[in-house]
Design a protein around this nucleic acid. Sequence first.
DNA 1: ATCCCGAGGG
DNA 2: CCCTCTGGAT
Length: 215
Amino acid sequence: MRGSLERALDTLSRLYPERKSFLDYETPFQLLVAVVLSAQCTDACVNEVTPALFSAYPDPAALANASPAELEALVFRTGFYRTKARHIREAAAIIVERFGGKVPGTMEDLTSLPGVGRKSAGVLLARCFGGQAIIVDTHFARVAWRLGLTAKGKNGLNPILVERDVAAALPKGRWTECSDLLNRHGREACFARKPRCLSCPIAAECDAFPVPGAV
DNA sequence: ATCCCGAGGG
DNA sequence: CCCTCTGGAT
């Protein structure tokens, strides 16, 4: 990276002052379900299916007893619908049986749930448990790579390595803020295709500037 | 490395 | 047609 990550974050925090979630939810349980459904699909799509889902299954006990076919129908549009339906149902059962009906608040317990990897667990820790986490999704990884914070390996970007590299470049107190801001920048300007490099406020700090085909 | 899997953009 | 959209499990 050409400049300081902390200075880039200061700039982005002025560009994106509010730090809202893009997934609709009211409780940790609802966020857990929404995050699992968000794999490889847009949050807008998730938000279309979750109202009916949360209405039909308001808590882990209800979801654990859901009919698989009915559940698959409700989450169909999010893609990977068989896998996702099974994961959220099994996760709900585990939450009831092992965690007293409450979503657990540690990385280890969260990632023990089916369908919950480090990225999804990080979202829960940061949003519901006040934790600090480097949340590596497709947007975050792309932006971190373009800035020059991490490198691609044989198989492209490895989320674990991206997390390690960014964590090493930043005090832990800013991990979640960094996750939010790079993610937000990725979805609003630093697109995978035709990113808005010409109006990017942190272009001067970016190793990839200007990305070929940028506008 | 591969599979799961629908939807929209270019 | 190919890529991308807040990944995770095998």
